[in-house]
Write a protein that binds this DNA or RNA. Sequence first.
DNA 1: TTGTAGGCGTTATCAT
DNA 2: ATGATAACGCCTACAA
Lengths: 349, 349
Amino acid sequence: MKSKDKVTIYDISKKLNISAATVSRALNNNPKISEKTRELVVKTAREMNYKQNRLAQALKQGRTNNVGVIVPYINRSFFSSVIRGIEEELTPHGYHIIIGQSHEEVEIEAEQLNALLNTQIDGIFMSVSKTTQKTDHIKKVLEEQTPLVFFDRKIDIPSVSSVVLDDYKAGYIATEHLIKEGCSRIAHLSGDINLEIYRNRFEGYKKALKDYEIDFNPEYVIQVNSKIESGMQAIDDLWKLEEKPDAIFSAGDYAALGAMQELRARKIKIPQEVCVVGFSNEPFTKYMELPITSMDQTPLMMGKIAAQVFLEQVKETNAYTVEKKVVLPPELIIRDSSNRKLLKLSDVS
Amino acid sequence: MKSKDKVTIYDISKKLNISAATVSRALNNNPKISEKTRELVVKTAREMNYKQNRLAQALKQGRTNNVGVIVPYINRSFFSSVIRGIEEELTPHGYHIIIGQSHEEVEIEAEQLNALLNTQIDGIFMSVSKTTQKTDHIKKVLEEQTPLVFFDRKIDIPSVSSVVLDDYKAGYIATEHLIKEGCSRIAHLSGDINLEIYRNRFEGYKKALKDYEIDFNPEYVIQVNSKIESGMQAIDDLWKLEEKPDAIFSAGDYAALGAMQELRARKIKIPQEVCVVGFSNEPFTKYMELPITSMDQTPLMMGKIAAQVFLEQVKETNAYTVEKKVVLPPELIIRDSSNRKLLKLSDVS
DNA sequence: TTGTAGGCGTTATCAT
DNA sequence: ATGATAACGCCTACAA
């Protein structure tokens, strides 16, 4: 099996009685080469079914034109959209993208990172896992001088660029929206507080409550993961309280979905009795029979901007690394799960 | 930026006053080396923060330990689960996985394939795009002697292995299920007939009708893509017919979802008036307020088996390539959208 | 057990 | 404009 009869520039050079160097130059559009030989070389290369060995080229040039992207999961709409954005921006520049999943495990994340570094990647885009507390494995990337760009879930390391959402503002907007819909006992399903994004959403939530003079009630804050079940469990817990909430602001769409399922099971009307807001604008939020209000994170743009930051970084040859921190505005997509106004309108008809 | 001060085995050898060969052997657990030197080398390698350059290693060894996976989209639950399966099976063998998306475009598919071949991949897993008619770009893979395994969406090429679902049976089972629920005017939302999988689902559907002596009505067959909107459009078309269908068997979950939304908009009761069955068991089918019956393709297993086929193939050194065609059984997950029996039960209570 | 030397396929430098 | 040659970092006969 392993006997690939590879055609090299050497084979071409022999066939044409010229040097391998000339062949290389012809293939790389080197200016100082006659048009005649270039055409000849290109033609015979095609005839002989020559394929450039990027391994050898990369070894020689010290760059692979490959970049790595590490995300917790690729099948979250948010992450796959960011990847798509990076792809669109980088492909025209000749880069290829290697995707790795950490499955939210810091050990796997470290392995993936290591593997990418070994393959001599030209840059790394990453969104850290929930379990990433230590940053040793990430610092190694910097030691290798490999450009690194965080997106969405970052870790504060000096001189490292990042593109993130304004999660504080997002938390504020979501909560404010619920208040304006007439809710006052607003529960918050928070993500893992280890991650900055979830801390920020939580802080934004608290600030909105404060601005509208609603007392913050710690009992209304439940930590969930991004599974349906944890959203159901949260409702279970919340509904044991004396004063039931009249709104749920979930830091994730899956937990919001679980919450809605549990509320439905308890015959609680949405949005009449309880309004629900999710986060991430996963496609399913739109498709539900009762579509869920959710926060859009403009993932495509996030990916594109992250790619641009990377491109600037590699352009700055020898210059000192410029740290760039981009913060994108969130956009609340209001749907039926929190839209009481719409409800009143349809009552009329 | 591009001045990575790489540590090589040469640096280590100089520091320890031994040869680079010895260092290499020590690092690769070569048996004929003294335990003492091995430990010493390993230790100083770590101290000097040595990282093996897999590029050089790959160039020398003729293998990269990388495999490529090409799918239409990574954010379809089915595809990302297959990838997960491949990953789980291959990671323990030291392989890394490079993922590429074709976005259902044969041109992009060809580019991705080419890029992977250039990077000297050790094998390729792929599920072809809808627009793949010509197979020239795929034949190139074979010319390079690179192991290739198709999964789910294959193309019949002699000597190429594949792992697919028994789509014919799946189509049969789905249709039979609808018949047993009392449906007789069963419409079929078919996928692109260019793809074998959709042809097979369609054929299975027809066979079930025949076995149960239901006339096949070509007007009941609408071709859709995997977008919600096309499912809505299909209902629009079907409901212009004299005899409205009383069941929908969709070859995709997204079209099934669109169909259900349109049926709901028309106040048609599911499953009382119309039963709906989808295909792929996308997570959202389970989470809906009215969960959708769907066909599970056991993607995790499909990925694992594809990986095993690949491993066998590379093991067969020099032996003639063995073509292996694996066909997996489908599993119908029955949910509310087609479950009239459940309905009767709950009527009682 | 360890060292020497050549080569994987490419490109860059220095000649010509 | 083209050719010869060295080098990228690693591995592996072959020799010692």
